[in-house]
Design a protein around this nucleic acid. Sequence first.
RNA 1: GCCCCGGUAGCUCAGUCGGAUAGAGCAGCGGACUUCUAAUCCGCAGGUCGAAGGUUCGAAUCCUUCCCGGGGUGCCA
Length: 595
Amino acid sequence: MRLDPLLQDMAAEAFATCFNTRLDADQFPVQKTRSEFPGERTIVCFPLARYSKAAPDATANTLGKALVEADGIVLGYNVLKGFLNLELDPKYWTDWLLGEAADTAYGSREVGSAPHVMVEYSSPNTNKPLHLGHLRNNFLGHSVSRILENRGHKVTKVQIINDRGIHICKSMVAWKQFGNGETPESSGIKGDKLVGKYYVAFDQAYKQEVASLMESGMEKTEAESQAPILMEAQNTLLNWERGDAETVALWTTMNGWVYQGFEDTYQTMGVEFDKLYYESSTYITGRERVLEGVDRGVFFKRDDGSVWVDLTGDGLDEKLLLRKDGTTVYMTQDIGTALLRFEDFPDLDRQVYTVGNEQEYHFKVLFLVLAKLGFSQAERCHHLSYGMVELPDGKMKSREGTVVDADDLMAAMFDIAEDIAKEAGKLEGLEEAQQKEIFQRVGMSALKYFLLKVDPKKNMTFDPKASIDFYGNTGPFILFNYVRGRSVLRKMEAEAIPLPHSGLAAPTEDEIDLIGLLHDMQEVIDEAADTYNPSLVANWCYDLTKAYSSYYQDHPILNADSEEERNLRLVLTERFTRCLNRGMHLLGIELPERM
RNA sequence: GCCCCGGUAGCUCAGUCGGAUAGAGCAGCGGACUUCUAAUCCGCAGGUCGAAGGUUCGAAUCCUUCCCGGGGUGCCA
């Protein structure tokens, strides 16, 4: 039994004996004791006073005495006002270290012991390279996937590729007009960057055409719709929808360039997908299912032919599902995609969508629609909503060239890691490939931790000038202390010292703090799974690391004064590195052995 | 207009299912490397928790109103 429920049970028992009143165990508020008082757990006795019919501090004293006499894990107590601080038997902590914490599976559950969940993330448009906002999305989605998997869920990671529509046609038209057959191979430009370049080229040409049309006397709105290059793009879209061979061929080619470019970026980011869905195929399913829904009376058709869903009974509005010309909207496509996924994976219990918070309304509607179509999974579906990554002076704007490119940023992080490592000079003697691997892990840890430590729902600020730090509350700080711990354990093995299984010294106050943090891991990662919130894991990793760092600084481990102390410190170090490894893995961060 | 989210130290963020004197990092100042990795540690300084009311033994946390910022709001995605 975990500590807090155990103490609650003991308290309920003792309270019944002392005051002749039996309360439920969860009526005893247990919290961590503030560090300035002796003890590890505190029972807040103010709310108990009305049942004990005694003052809070008197109640606390009576209860504390009874808990000590109960001959359990409580050795002593102290009372301040209504706060009953319990001083636990140090043996409780060493037993825990050698018990639950010794299990290498501590903190995880068997995969498949919880239902199958699908997590969608990334899902970028195919007209622009990935930027900082996508990094937050990908890291979040990937981390949540791992957190759910750790919780025992079977997890399928997917993304929807928005490969259809006017945006890719614009790039196609511009490439045909200005590209001279340029390819990623011929130019050495990454595929997504190349297509993005023509998307920009389209926009520039379009603006010029609009301007010259207006100079020759045309109204602005007319010029904007009559510009030849835009009409060409619209024509391309029509050709694509008709299945015109040449258009489809170019579309396939250019989308292929983009995907290859994205794939390279995903590889660097360390994220992956189990299955891809393509909007170009799911929107048709969506239209079919919406029309079926009309037949079943779930949706209704207006006189003009448009199809709607009535959500006024759910406190929302009426929402358009098909335009009057029969074409699909975003919602139609998402309905189709969702239904396809439930068909592809009949055991799927829910879907989690990692999408920015500007689409909260959209997902509220989507889940209601799925419920109306008879999918009971809908009530467990979750929109993993996250805030924007903003620059100090506001949003990233592609027109103003303030977009922070994902590839550039990652490369910059690797460079910084390399500079710092070379200055420290601790990697000399390692092969170049090994060094490079370390630079990448350290740089990536800085970036991932920076983006994941903030509560997903909050907007966050990224200052390109201040850059991302490698000191203080950062990924590299956590890695550094992991490396220090591992270094000790390597030396332990080199000296043929076995990892102790008994004979631990009684832990001191700072050691109990450290054990307490290790003990917290279970609750933290459970809550992170329940709330789809990696920032809880990130902050726990930091708290744990900070405690270890401070401890490491002034406690010799292998050269401890006594064998019992050395045993305890070695076990602590082993548990620290292993638990930290689990936490960081859940964030998608890989730990180096040296740095 | 209505709905959702945020507002905590100069800056970036924790803490928010009510509990003790609100915590970290960065930036500033002062210390600590003959030792298992100093990308570290220790100390100092820094706060009307957006504002005002209310509930409570107790409010950054719950309720009401207001202010500021962001987002959304039937044929963009």
